[in-house]
Nucleic acid binder design. Sequence first.
DNA 1: CCCGTGACGGGGG
DNA 2: CCCCCCGCCACGG
Length: 112
Amino acid sequence: MNQNFFERVYDVARQIPQGRVTTYGMIAHYLGTKGSARMVGWAMNASGKDESIPAHRVVNRNGLLTGKAHFGDIYQMEQLLFEEGIQVKDNQIQNFKNLIWDPSIELISTKF
DNA sequence: CCCGTGACGGGGG
DNA sequence: CCCCCCGCCACGG
């Protein structure tokens, strides 16, 4: 089940619509591993070279760009979001609540 | 094998 | 608002 974990994370991440964002915790919760938000972050870390995975659309529960240090340069994550119409100020996504895309709500539970 | 280290999050003070 | 603690678990030293 664990080798699939990263892939399951990536499958969810790939479905995040442009201009929307989700959180590590929401993905973990959707996958049924509520307490493993950290592993979602680890998965994003490992996804680094795969450009089909929109890692910039995954932020922490407060809408902060806590993962920006892992992109090419420290402005890359913010830049990618900006190109999708998302405003960021001091690492904080503006209008965060209205941009959240929660897989547990937005996706039909087709797991299995 | 033990241990520190996190792109995290919830709870409590 | 701030801080600390704990659960989580893959990975590297």
